[in-house]
Design a binder for these strands. Structure first.
Lengths: 199, 199, 199, 199
DNA sequence: CATGAATGAGTGTTCATTCAT
DNA sequence: TATGAATGAACACTCATTCAT
């Protein structure tokens, strides 16, 4: 079966692609964008600098893809076990806790996403728009909550600002060892989130 | 030492210093830290690149000072008219609205501060610690609120995450024209902030 | 590691390395260390400035290598045809004349070595020590001469100062056209050298 | 007597001039020409960089003057107590030992002169020629020695190479702590020098 | 005379990207 | 596909010198 061979080849290539994405993630997180040169990324992924350009158009493209793939895996995690017909608060808590778990355990990925979302010049507009789509189920849930009179009738940006965005801050502080996000804190945090957006 | 009494000389011009800080603010905001080279900063401030080094030790020092001076002017604005014996909610609302006004009207400064606070590699630890001190009156107010049984007895990091940090998100969205922070929205936002932290 | 078996690539060209060393030699000799910038070296070697850093770690490394390689080729010349069992005076004369020939005909190399040996800040200590090793056969010969009661029993530094070091001066003067090192002069010079160190 | 005032002024100015020369001497000796910037020289002499240009035309001029003044003080020392009618060997020994004493005790000055004499690009031709004149009495002595059949009838460059130049090497080695120039060594060295040039 | 600010030209070095294999 | 060599353009920073006082 020569499909095996192609398979093998594709698999091997994908390993390099993933190694490159991982190296980029790690370097940008720890050294900052301005000290994550292509040469270091290549070295860390154990390939030649030139090889990067086989898998990605250029550095910006590499960053964009990294962003989009992490964003996708974030929302996959966020909506795990979520069913659109759950009661609003139940559904929200499920999503919220999923997101919190991701930020707590996929620290590197979360840190990278947070940087990208906070720095206007890192990701280009197109990729950012693309990344936003993943949130749709949450927006739908909120809309339903508003119809049902459970959630404040305000812009989803406001809801996001108070319900989701604070998690990024807590994650950052936890990473700097300024603050520990225990199970108790997590429950308090959810309470705050819910109180901020419920009617 | 007494030479400055007897000898004539040109003196450092504060105008140039400020022009340099402004140029840096503008470039970092619009191009990102990685595309704000000293040469562009100099050109924008209408001085020679070498002149920067008369006013600042190096690029990092320039960024640090810009951060600290903006942070100071932010907290000056934040605590304008604030008196430590105001009732807790009144005091909090005053500070919160002051901060919101700053973020709404000193957009550039706020954007820069937000970037610095969110990217670990931008400001060195020392300057960050220095910048944190400015928040003390708010922390004191929260402590008092907790004693009085008005504010949740949780870590100040949690309070900050839900009461203050969301403003950064709203500011960013407003800047991207995704969202308009009207007077009405502002009142809703404050409600959310307060509900998130009050008992 | 096995990648060089399976993958094609351009290989470092020794020609470029040598062109860079030659350019450096020439520029340092004619303009001095302080006016031999990497940009000029690159231009003279007909490569991009960045290419230098493929072949050498940095400017100091480039200078060190140039020193060591010239030092090695100097001592290769110095000990050409030398056999350790030659009579002391014969052996010394052979080495001395070899050195003189090198300094007379490999003028550029000799001039560079002389500069390096006379300016403490040019070569780092490690490379200087490395370069010293090449003289060992001469030191051994002197030691034998001392045992045989032919050569003064004084520090080898003294012997070197009077037997070898003067050649550097003569070479310099010859280069400045102040003095011509004819065959006759050479014989006189050797006589002086020998008289200075023999018992 | 207003000459007193002028005197005072001239004296004060001369102090700065000397401070600048000393600073230059020290920095060039210890850091090398390429790391002895005008700004450091000024700082070390406790004056403004601009002040240097009141006392010297430019950096090259500063180096040249330093060279010439040290060369002059070297030959003043060299010919101390020398009388042109001394017997040749006596006269030579006097001068030689004077020179040796200078190199042993005015280490900084001697080191600087040695650097200048060995590096073609440090001093401009004019100053070098000027500096050479100081040696005249020694050259005259040698000429007399040659007439009297005591000293080899060879070029004065050869005589200098073997009689004087080796001292520079010994001084350098002494400074690097590779070698100690004791009284005994000094006598051996003089013997070598004399044997190298006498008939 | 003396100053510290100011600077254009230059420094060694790095980088994202391309080339030749 | 994959490589390491190669590079032009840029980078942060420094320097000898001049300017304005």
């Amino acid at each position: 079966m020569n499909s095996n061979l192609t398979m093998a080849k594709r698999t091997k290539s994908n390993e390099k692609r993933i190694a490159l994405l991982n190296a980029t993630l790690h370097l940008v997180n720890n050294n900052g964008f301005h000290d994550a040169p292509m040469s270091k990324i290549a070295k860390m992924a154990d390939v030649s600098p030139a090889t990067i350009y086989i898998y990605f158009e250029n550095k910006q493209d590499l960053i964009n893809r990294l962003y989009l793939e992490n964003k996708a895996s974030f929302s996959e995690a966020a909506f795990k076990n979520y069913l659109p017909d759950l009661p609003v608060k139940k559904g929200f808590e499920l999503i919220w806790r999923n997101m919190a778990q991701f930020k707590l355990h996929q620290v590197e990925e979360a840190k990278f996403l947070s940087q990208c979302d906070n720095i206007s010049t890192m990701i280009d507009e197109e990729s950012r728009q693309e990344g936003l789509k993943n949130l749709q189920p949450l927006l739908d849930l909120w809309k339903r909550g508003q119809k049902e009179g459970i959630i404040k009738s305000v812009s989803p940006y406001l809801l996001y600002a108070y319900a989701i965005y604070p998690l990024a801050f807590l994650m950052t502080m936890q990473q700097r060892n300024d603050f520990e996000l225990t199970e108790g804190n997590l429950t308090e945090a959810f309470e705050s989130a819910w109180n901020a957006i419920r009617i």
